[in-house]
Design a binder for these strands. Structure first.
Lengths: 231, 231
DNA sequence: ATAATTTTTTAATCTTGCCTAAACAATAGC
DNA sequence: GCTATTGTTTAGGCAAGATTAAAAAATTAT
């Protein structure tokens, strides 16, 4: 039940998994782009992964994971995200610096190792970017409670729960704006002209947020609270 | 000052470092044996490491590390041993199970990463097998305070400080004998016939230790204590 | 000192994973 | 329905690291 691939193979499975979730199938070109490789390299690797029965690949169509391939992919993602938690919470890395190391650490260890790491970290539900950590069976919990920032109405209160972009420069920008996961804001105003926002945090401090930033935040709408005057 | 090699290169440097400490020079064959490779593979890699100026290699003689090569080797050993501490103390692995994983983890991270890990672990002086952890400059502290078991005289008290063999079966055998690092014993009797020993631990429990086991233990002799009658 | 043995090196090949360039499908435009 | 474009696959190669088998050097033995 628990075999494992080479580093390169695991990276392909991860990429295919994510593309499959977005588009139903992983095109050769999309895989190549995600892995910074050429489409020709992808064709070669897909042949190998097909032989291993970790993907089903139809020539000129695209690739889809088999159950076995999906198991390896989710296990790799699980390890990646657990290591990110370790790096931030235990080694005090900033959240924009953990991806590169987790990218290497995710290929180490077996199921026992992973469960020990998970237990040591207190079985975290999400990584430092708010992405859910799949459980040991590869199942995802609570992936659906986060929604895009666009739907926010005036005065709406919400909590920042995740980012849909983990690039260092974006994360450092959030740091500069003093926006952290779990922090609660309310909408002051929305400016349709450029799509930017003005928000207020819980201590009454206002932040201006560009459309580019807001559109990459995953938020959870707070249960509408009775305002002091309407009560 | 802080460059780094490929995984394979780092493993060669580690092997050469250890052989050099034992024999002054690392022969082609000894390296091959340590890395479970063929001598031909070693010749090829030594050529590369010589180009990189990490080793000095004289044909048909052997290899010696340059300062740069030594720095990479000790840094790799430092990381290996820090990770072993992590695996035992934080993830609750048994001490006979950590080597394989540390062997992979040791190739990950830069100097900053390593120092964060070190700080998180409380700057341990030794790994779970009692081997000293070199500091960030590659210097070794207290390597000399451990000596071989052969010199023990009757009634001598001593503390087990390390093992000169970290093979799983040996370590599990020590577990079965209830011998742990830091534990104190006194010599009851030595049997020259087969070189075996009888020892007594602090709670008065006797252990029989074969020559094979005793010769792989590194111990520290306790300051001779006045026995109750001789005082 | 010469022969026998051991160790090291060379030479040719393999595997994994990648690349470029060219050929081949599939889709889109008209 | 035929051409133009886009995406995919083949073909040939390269680099790292390893292998086996044979040649060369060094060491040991007589």
């Amino acid at each position: 039940m628990n075999s494992t691939g080479s580093i390169s193979q695991e990276n392909y499975l991860k990429a295919i998994f994510k593309l499959q979730n977005e588009h139903g199938i992983a095109s050769n070109q999309a895989i190549a782009e995600k892995l910074a490789a050429t489409p020709a390299a992808v064709t070669g690797m897909l042949r190998k992964l097909t032989e291993l029965e970790w993907v089903e690949h139809t020539a000129y169509q695209g690739a889809v994971l088999t159950p076995k391939g999906k198991q390896i992919a989710t296990s790799t993602i699980r390890k990646h995200r657990l290591w990110e938690v370790f790096l931030v919470e235990k080694l005090q890395f900033k959240w924009d610096a953990v991806h590169q190391w987790a990218e290497e650490l995710e290929h180490i260890g077996d199921a026992d190792f992973t469960e020990r790491l998970d237990a040591f970290l207190g079985c975290p539900a999400t990584d430092p970017h708010g992405d859910p950590i799949p459980d040991a069976n590869g199942d995802w919990a609570g992936n659906e409670r986060v929604i895009l920032a666009d739907v926010l109405a005036c005065n709406q209160e919400f909590t920042v729960r995740g980012v849909s972009n983990s690039a260092s420069d974006f994360l450092r920008h959030l740091d500069a704006l003093n926006i952290q996961l779990g922090k609660q804001f309310s909408v002051v105003e929305h400016f349709p002209f450029d799509g930017s926002w003005e928000w207020k945090d819980e201590s009454g401090v206002n932040v201006r947020v560009s459309r580019e930033v807001a559109s990459q935040l995953l938020v959870e709408l707070n249960r509408p609270q009775m305002s002091s005057k309407s009560q």
